[in-house]
Design a protein around this nucleic acid. Structure first.
Lengths: 219, 219
DNA sequence: GGAATATACTCCAAATTGGAGTATATTCCA
DNA sequence: TGGAATATACTCCAATTTGGAGTATATTCC
């Protein structure tokens, strides 16, 4: 018995979308690239197209080929076994890890190899990017709120989850403002001791941020 | 002329570390797995070991084999061409994208396929994870501040960068508290309309978060 | 003297990316 | 009415990256 390829979180993500309604890989990809899911589970298009085939091999979805003119379309639907596997996955203890990846922070960490100006430029770029993301997010949320879809699927879960996105975005934005100021203060002319001093102030700010969280009264 | 494999941000990350001091792949890996870099540019051990060979092929680093008893050690050092390539990379406009990946958010978004209890359990797990990360981070920063290394490398840049980590961690922690409460309020017994209502409240909270950022006075 | 831990790697299958390529269908605007 | 742009609906594949297992020797601690 040759075992089937193991299911990944991506498999379950798509299975979860198919639990809402049958869809083609194209439909799934549109959701994967444009919805909240993209923010917390980004996957390549080619991956979104290949994954349903794996679900099919596992018997978690069924496929139906449709013809509309010269163009064909494969629509996937979740099976009973799929429903079963999905709710089993949801129930399983979650991996609460939150991974991030940001090339510009790498440049900041290694900024010694460049000039202070470079570090400032990088911070300003981050600030600009946050501003753009904020505008886009506001438009998106407003569209959802004004949209008259009767009880959009995933309520209230999507609403709760989107707050993680906006809270992190707010933190990133405010940090960018701080970093733009802090990097502007730094200059190549500074002495090693001045640089160290400035670094210490920064570390202390970070420590304060965390200590405030532990002091939070739980009343 | 067969072209060499292209350099990735990971290549530059290691080149940047070698710009501080010569090191073995083992040393580089220790930094990659334990320092701030791990938070914003996590890479697998096998990758950290193979990348210096690519740098070597490009002539950006040189290698020196050392013997210490029966065990050998390859120490890499940055070359002049490496210095050049590194500062060119630092100067290049940064990719300011900030990617995240969090399986537990996926479970929350797809929580319709499970019970309200599952969503709450997931939120509580996220909260617990944040608490552990906060403790670890406090210990780490305190160690840096009390450590008497004279002007640790990367000052003040590392200090500024670490604030992005702590600011995001604070946002994640506070969101987890919010999510634990919000998911506790939700129940499977709720009507579709109640769920929709609760979702709307959540979306409005997210919108408020972002709008406050735009209203920030720039004085 | 033995166990645990640190140093110092290699190997490889599997997962994932990202970009290019190939069609047909529909919508828009001139 | 014709042509361009955009949307639908995919496939293919090389290159990147992961993650885990495996193989040594060296040092520290009890």
């Amino acid at each position: 018995m040759t075992s089937l390829p193991k299911l990944s979180p991506t498999s379950y993500a798509l299975l979860g979308l198919l639990a809402r309604a049958p869809a083609s890989a194209y439909d799934l990809n549109t959701v994967m690239q444009t919805s909240l899911i993209r923010v917390f589970w980004p996957r390549a298009e080619s991956h979104v197209y290949s994954e349903p085939k794996k679900l099919l091999a596992h018997g978690l979805v069924s496929e139906a080929k449709q013809q509309s003119g010269g163009r064909s379309r494969t629509v996937y639907s979740i099976t009973a076994a799929g429903q079963e596997a999905l709710s089993e996955w949801i129930k399983r203890e979650a991996n609460a890890e939150h991974r991030s990846q940001a090339e510009f922070v790498l440049k900041l960490i290694l900024a010694d190899a460049g000039s202070a100006k470079d570090a400032q430029t990088t911070s300003l770029k981050a600030l600009e990017t946050c501003r753009a993301e904020i505008s886009t997010a506001i438009d998106g949320i407003e569209a959802i709120l004004s949209g008259s879809e009767p009880a959009a699927s995933g309520m209230p879960w999507n609403g709760i989850a989107i707050n993680l996105m906006t809270d992190i975005l707010a933190a990133r934005y405010r940090w960018s403002e701080y970093a733009a100021t802090a990097t502007a203060q730094a200059s190549d002319a500074q002495s090693a001791d001045e640089k160290r001093q400035q670094g210490e102030v920064a570390y202390r700010r970070a420590l304060d941020t965390l200590r405030q969280l532990q002091e939070t009264p739980n009343d």
